[in-house]
Amino acid sequence: MKKAILALLPGLVLLAFWEWASGRLIREIYVSKPSAIAVRLYELFATGEILPHLVVTLQELVLGYLVGVLSGVVVGYWLGRSPRVAAVVEPYVMAFYGIPKIALAPLFIIWFGIGIGSKIALAGIMVFFLTFYNVYTGVRNVDREYANLALIMGAKERQLTRHVYLPAAAPFVLLGMRMAIPYSVIGVIVGEFASSTRGLGLFINQASSTYDPAGVFAGIVILLAFILVANIGAARLERRLLRWRPQAAAQSNDI
């Protein structure tokens, strides 16, 4: 409890300074101020103005993340288990990995339209690469002796996947999934900046062009809340699935 208060303290100090400095050291039109942002947030929810944006962005985030994680796990696992295929494909994957995914936004809008499709694609591809890379590394690093032992004990290919490769790679999979959370948000927001009819990215963009810094910050606060909630979920999942690890019991990092 005492620790929690101590951890909150720097944040509170920062907010207080922000509130005080706004209008004194810096013009409010640049940085708004916490009280104005809180009021703006309240208005946005009270009038329901933000809800259509919220729902669309949330859909894009969840779908983009799922598409990215699922395809990343499947392709990463497959290439991790097939070194010969991987030897051929890996250079191409790495080349694509080097492309700044954000630059694909205009292309995806041509392909998938200005609706949620293009945002799912953009978030999905960013999440895919992170998950893929972690799963691929994880599966390749599974100790061959465990697999051999399981084979001697009579494991079929499917059982080898379920009882050896997936659990052994789980720490990498979960790390990739956690790292991918902020990237899914980047993908969705950039997609919405580029072109959209609804969504938090659009809302932030409009608030900016109408000189409404409190609105911009309110949008950012909502995004931050998404990320926090998602991270807490990921940490829970990690602790549940990795409770067999000696470290897992000792450390607790929710954020």
Binding site: E145, I152, G154, H163, W244
Partner: peptide
């Protein structure tokens, strides 16, 4: 050859399973 049993140098119990899950695994297979 899955008709044999192999006791390796390192114990190689699967770290993600409990002792009883480990011992049960060959019978699961």
């Amino acid at each position: 050859n899955s008709t044999i049993g192999f006791i390796p140098q390192q114990s190689l119990l699967f770290p993600w399973y409990t002792l009883s899950q480990n011992v049960a695994l060959p019978m699961v297979f």
